[in-house]
Design a protein around this nucleic acid. Structure first.
Length: 220
DNA sequence: TTGCGGATGGACT
DNA sequence: GTCCATCCGCAAC
């Protein structure tokens, strides 16, 4: 993918190489990666690459913004009310997708973390597009690279993620996350979570410092 | 550039 | 009937 020249210097991971047809050298994150503390996973997902197999080609993007929803004691979390039909996948063991429908319009994609029964997950809020951007542009109805995947609803629209992906194994071949195999060379910024009314002060949102692919600007 | 409200539908009480 | 881990367009500045 071509990045705008001016922005390129600002993006710490601009040199990541990954093509639609070849993921050689990249390793899928394993169950043991996901079955750890939610906050840890939320931080470590930054810089990793989300891949969705479109049948024909692979849509992918670098994860640039995450939010942790650690579990049942967090009033902002879907799991706070206990297990229901809607959130049941969130209570399974880490390493699967939790996709939910909200606001009558949008899906949001989460990665379930930790042990079975915890109800903890990481919301993927923003990506830096890598491959399959033509499809993303079509799905989103815009050609603006900065408006393709900078928001949880935008990501699912761009990637075609929907309720079919709810509960899907993230170590399978349809939807998964890979390691870019490089030493991380960015700083992580902590901030408050977006769009919630309860338990708002926790610093459970994580972004890559300096990366312009974020959903909303930092508030100080 | 910021802030507000409508769209939209399914899950939950 | 109410709530909602969102997005977009438009009004007002």
């Amino acid at each position: 993918m071509e990045l705008h020249k001016k922005e390129e210097r600002k993006i710490p991971i601009s040199r990541t190489v990954f093509s639609s047809n070849d993921s050689g050298g990249f390793k899928k994150l394993t169950k043991s990666f996901y079955r750890r503390n939610c906050i840890t996973v939320a931080k470590e997902l930054l810089g990793k690459i989300l891949v969705v197999n479109n049948g024909r080609l692979k849509l992918s993007g670098i994860i640039t913004e995450t939010e942790a929803y650690p579990g049942k004691n967090d009033e902002a979390s879907h799991s706070y009310i206990g297990k229901t039909k809607r959130n049941e996948k969130m209570f399974e063991a880490g390493g699967i997708a939790y996709v939910y429908f909200t606001y009558g319009n949008h899906f949001c994609f989460n990665v379930v973390t930790g042990k079975e029964g915890l109800g903890s997950a990481v919301l993927i809020r923003s990506l830096q597009p890598l491959t399959g951007t033509d499809i993303m542009k079509k799905n989103r109805g815009t050609t603006d690279i900065y408006n393709l995947t900078t928001g949880p609803g935008k990501i699912t629209q761009a990637f075609g993620i929907n309720r079919k992906h709810n509960g899907m194994d993230l170590t399978g071949d349809i939807i998964y996350i890979i390691n870019n195999n490089k030493k991380e060379d960015f700083n992580i910024v902590r901030s408050k979570r977006i769009g919630i009314k309860k338990n708002r002060d926790k610093l459970f949102r994580f972004t890559i410092e300096g990366n312009p692919f974020i959903s909303v600007k930092q508030k100080k």
